[in-house]
């Protein structure tokens, strides 16, 4: 019951945050100097044309009035119409969202695998040169952001040893039988492993670039947590039962060490999603972030608005999911103590 009330409170603060984000974006993009409508019309358009289109997009009204109209639309699932492509923002954004989600989740999986391996290897070899070497590598991975790792990967795996694609989401000449925009998942469901391989080959480099800093954070936090857990009495008791180091680390220490790591990793995962914006640009990956940068460059106000709100919604949703899973994974909280 208490858990439920805490959850409701979280929902309320989340709503406040999202409204705050909406207001800020709304105000910021409307102080843009220059009329975006004038920019999109061909040269030679008359003043009357501009005025007519400006009114059509509602840009002639005051900012508070525009905000109210926009809010009314959002409640009905209408996020406005893109100025550059003249299509509903919601449809455009939802069309690109799967690409970004797939990229983020793949990056998360890579980060968890690498970070987990670092933490386990480091704990297994604690106090040795192996751990020291891992710490140095980890420190470097942590210090350098995804953008630079992306460039390094492009140089290494795109040019020096070209084994992966470094541009796009899928080879353009391929025929795609997909009905959804979740290419990665759908290719598996349709058992089209040829397409799947092509998609993974495109995604792997950007996903790895996003994953490297997060992997380092997971490696560091989880190792620290594991090493603390390894001193606890139940771990010692398990040793007397005849279990070896590997079993003790993975079965006794790991389940308890994961929990404190989880919350921190949740926040870091939102940073990873934020990083998709520039990484998608770097790898010409057709996702939400790439679309966002185009929208900014083209001054497509309704589209920018929609994308930023969507990112904010994803961030808060991730935080919510992390808190919930923390409650569910912790036996103490699960049983209402």
């Amino acid at each position: 019951m208490q858990l439920f009330r805490a959850f409701l409170l979280r929902l309320a603060t989340t709503a406040v945050t999202l409204i705050g984000v909406a207001v800020i974006v709304f105000v910021v993009i409307r102080v843009v100097p220059g009329n975006p409508i004038a920019m999109m019309l061909p040269p030679g358009a008359t003043e009357a044309d501009i005025a007519r289109l400006t009114a059509q997009y509602g840009l002639d009204k005051s900012i508070p009035a525009q905000f109210l109209i926009w809010c009314q639309g959002v409640v009905q699932g209408d996020f406005g119409t893109s100025i550059t492509s003249n299509q509903p923002v919601l449809r455009l954004v939802l069309g690109r969202l799967p690409a970004t989600l797939e990229l983020s989740i793949m990056a998360l999986v890579i980060a968890v695998v690498i970070g987990g391996a670092i933490a386990l290897t480091g704990t297994r070899n604690r106090g040795t040169k192996v751990e020291a070497a891992l710490d140095v590598g980890n420190g470097m991975a942590l210090s350098v952001p995804d953008f630079l790792w992306g460039l390094v990967l492009i140089l290494i795996f795109g040019v020096l040893w070209p084994v992966f694609h470094i541009s796009g989401r899928v080879t353009p000449s391929l025929e795609l039988p997909f009905t959804t925009d979740f290419y990665l998942f759908e290719s598996v469901l349709r058992l089209r492993f040829d397409l799947w391989a092509d998609i993974v080959s495109h995604m792997f480099m950007p996903a790895l670039a996003l994953a490297i800093p997060l992997a380092a954070i997971i490696g560091q936090l989880l190792k620290q947590s594991l090493k603390e857990t390894m001193h606890l009495d139940y771990v010692t008791l398990a040793r007397t039962k005849g279990y070896g180091e590997n079993h003790v680390i993975t079965r006794e220490a790991l389940p308890n060490a994961i929990l404190p790591t989880l919350t921190l990793v949740g926040v870091q995962f939102t940073f990873l999603i934020g990083g998709t914006v520039i990484i998608e640009r770097l790898f010409s990956y057709e996702g939400l972030g790439n679309m966002a940068i185009d929208a900014v460059i083209n001054r497509d106000l309704p589209l920018i608005q929609g994308i930023v709100i969507l990112f904010a919604a994803i961030f808060t949703a991730v935080n919510l999911i992390v808190d919930l899973s923390y409650a569910l994974l912790n036996p103490r909280l699960r049983h209402g103590q």
Binding site: L232, D233, Y234, L237, A238, P255, N256, L259, P331, R332
Partner: peptide, 10 residues
């Protein structure tokens, strides 16, 4: 010695 810490909480 300490039954509170000698059982794995998870």
């Amino acid at each position: 010695q300490d039954p509170l810490t000698a059982l794995n909480p998870s």
